[in-house]
């Protein structure tokens, strides 16, 4: 028996925070790649601390639905899941290259294949492109368009910016968009000046966040001047300084995100059969994989 456990942040205040996690879990359930799929949360239940005991399987693939490596993936999740003898060096990561480490859960004895976060997997680049396609409703979007990949920045974790830049660079190398730029909320280059960083008339802005919430629904739209007051909403696209801004909302809500979770587990040795292809074709990702 093998199980997939998804570890996500969740929220005490926002009911919608867990929705993408449930949606992606259901996509994976539908292809029956695992005997069990279970969502778990830092701020909701089942909590990281107790989810493993609700899972029957002895082999568990634990995939953090987080954007970058850092505090949560290196300290909080291993501690709360009680992964014996964990140390970040087991991932041997440069900040974006965490893959997997096999450990034992102290309280349940299960074998835990602890995977790197979804956000730094290569397949995440495809999700960002897919998100651009979704928001423009154009499967061929690219020509004449700039793409901004937006992250929080370094506030507490330098890897946060690394993950954004990693995907911006990868997508840039594909020459699909005229320009690709990493932008941040709390450091340069800042999202406030988005129009200064692009020559293209059309700019797709994809925030690398797991769920929509305060940052993606309030901060970023106001910082980019899509609206004076987030409560009044904004158009897609909205014209700012002569550029059309196509703001997509959190990348983590894109259905293709389920593929990244699945690929993380498969990379760690899970037997997922043809599930990756099936999930890709069901979430529109089949033609998105460019490299």
């Amino acid at each position: 028996m093998q199980a997939l456990v998804i570890a996500a942040h969740g929220s005490h205040l926002s009911a919608g925070s867990s929705t993408p996690t449930f949606d992606h879990a259901d996509t994976i359930r539908a292809v029956s790649a695992f005997d069990e799929v279970r969502e778990s949360f830092w701020k909701e239940e089942p909590h990281f601390r107790e989810v493993l005991r609700t899972v029957d399987a002895d082999e568990v693939y634990l995939v953090p639905l987080f954007i970058s490596e850092g505090y949560f993936t290196e300290q909080v999740i291993p501690r709360e899941f009680r992964l014996e003898e964990w140390e970040p060096e087991l991932w041997d990561s440069d900040g974006t290259s965490a893959d997997t480490a096999t450990l034992t859960a102290e309280d349940t004895g299960q074998t835990i294949h602890y995977c790197g976060p979804a956000g730094t997997h290569d397949a995440m680049s495809d999700v960002i492109v897919q998100r651009a396609q979704s928001v423009t409703d154009d499967p061929d979007v690219g020509d004449g368009f700039g793409l901004a990949v937006v992250g929080h920045g370094t506030e507490r974790n330098e890897n946060s910016a690394k993950a954004i830049e990693y995907h911006a660079d990868r997508i840039g190398e594909r020459d699909r968009f005229d320009e690709v730029q990493a932008l941040f909320m709390d450091e340069d280059p800042e999202i406030d000046d988005v129009t200064e960083y692009f020559e293209s008339d059309d700019i797709v802005v994809v925030p690398l966040f797991v769920a929509d919430g305060y940052h993606t629904e309030e901060d970023i739209p106001e910082d980019m001047r899509l609206t004076d007051d987030y409560r009044t909403g904004y158009d897609v696209p909205t014209t700012v300084d002569g550029h059309d801004i196509w703001y997509s909302g959190a990348v983590g809500t894109e259905p293709l995100m389920a593929d990244v979770l699945l690929e993380r587990a498969a990379d760690a040795g899970a037997d997922v059969g043809d599930a990756i292809q099936r999930v890709k074709s069901e979430t529109g990702g089949a033609e998105a994989s460019g490299d």
């Binding site: 239940e45 089942p46 107790e50 005991r53 609700t54």
Partner: peptide
């Protein structure tokens, strides 16, 4: 388990 997570196990 979806209504009251982990209550059965504990």
């Amino acid at each position: 388990e979806f209504v009251y997570p982990a209550t059965v196990a504990n």
